[in-house]
Simulated assay, not measured.
Amino acid sequence: MSASLETITISVHPDLPSADAQRSLASWLRAEDRLRERVTTTPPDGMSADRTDVLRVAVDDAGAVMVLVQAIAGWLTHRREDVTVQLGRPGWSAELDVRRARDMDQVTALIEATVGAVAAEG
């Protein structure tokens, strides 16, 4: 019996236009074997279909969630600008305001706490 899929949505809001940041994060996540086929891009509600401002990542177990957390943390520590990352699923969302992150352990801990809160709500 397979585990059920949970979809976590991710949006990025840097000071600069977000399209490049979204493409960058999507590419970074797809570099992970466990996430490669699980990352999709969709426009936010009410936006045109050519916008890809929301990432959706399907996770089915704690291992996939940890890969997602570590991948986001790695991406954040390589960013040069300030970013706000929003994570969520239906009925729940959280916002991470990251200012030029350089300490991957701190970023990972912050994301783990957020994703843990998402899982606890489910």
Results as ranks from 00 to 15, higher is better:
residue 22 Q to L: 11
residue 59 V to F: 02
residue 94 A to V: 07
residue 122 G to E: 08
residue 46 G to N: 01
residue 13 H to N: 13
residue 70 Q to M: 14
residue 61 D to P: 06
residue 93 S to T: 12
residue 113 A to Q: 10
residue 83 V to E: 12
residue 92 W to L: 12
residue 27 S to E: 14
residue 29 L to E: 06
residue 55 L to T: 02
residue 1 M to G: 11
residue 98 V to H: 04
residue 119 A to F: 11
residue 47 M to I: 09
residue 13 H to R: 14
residue 54 V to A: 10
residue 14 P to Q: 03
residue 118 V to I: 14
residue 89 R to D: 11
residue 16 L to N: 14
residue 79 R to F: 04
residue 71 A to V: 01
residue 105 D to V: 06
residue 25 L to S: 03
residue 122 G to L: 12
residue 38 R to P: 07
residue 35 L to I: 00
residue 115 V to W: 00
residue 84 T to C: 07
residue 92 W to T: 08
residue 121 E to G: 08
residue 7 T to H: 14
residue 72 I to C: 01
residue 109 A to F: 06
residue 2 S to T: 15
residue 103 D to F: 00
residue 75 W to F: 03
residue 112 E to P: 03
residue 23 R to A: 15
residue 73 A to N: 01
residue 74 G to D: 02
residue 99 R to D: 03
residue 121 E to N: 13
residue 88 G to D: 02
residue 49 A to I: 04
residue 90 P to E: 10
residue 119 A to C: 09
residue 77 T to P: 08
residue 85 V to E: 02
residue 9 T to M: 06
residue 61 D to K: 01
residue 26 A to S: 08
residue 67 V to A: 10
residue 67 V to Y: 03
residue 54 V to Y: 01
residue 69 V to E: 11
residue 44 P to D: 07
residue 58 A to T: 09
residue 16 L to S: 15
residue 100 R to Q: 10
residue 19 A to V: 09
residue 23 R to H: 07
residue 88 G to C: 08
residue 30 R to A: 03
residue 90 P to T: 07
residue 108 T to V: 07
residue 122 G to A: 14
residue 76 L to H: 03
residue 59 V to N: 02
residue 84 T to I: 06
residue 96 L to C: 09
residue 22 Q to M: 13
residue 95 E to F: 05
residue 65 V to A: 12
residue 5 L to R: 13
residue 51 R to G: 11
residue 12 V to F: 02
residue 96 L to W: 03
residue 42 T to W: 07
residue 16 L to G: 10
residue 107 V to K: 04
residue 113 A to D: 11
residue 82 D to N: 12
residue 121 E to D: 13
residue 85 V to I: 03
residue 106 Q to W: 06
residue 5 L to N: 15
residue 47 M to C: 11
residue 119 A to L: 15
residue 24 S to R: 06
residue 109 A to M: 06
residue 61 D to G: 09
residue 12 V to C: 05
residue 98 V to P: 02
residue 65 V to L: 13
residue 30 R to T: 00
residue 80 R to Q: 12
residue 59 V to G: 05
residue 71 A to W: 04
residue 88 G to K: 04
residue 111 I to N: 01
residue 80 R to E: 12
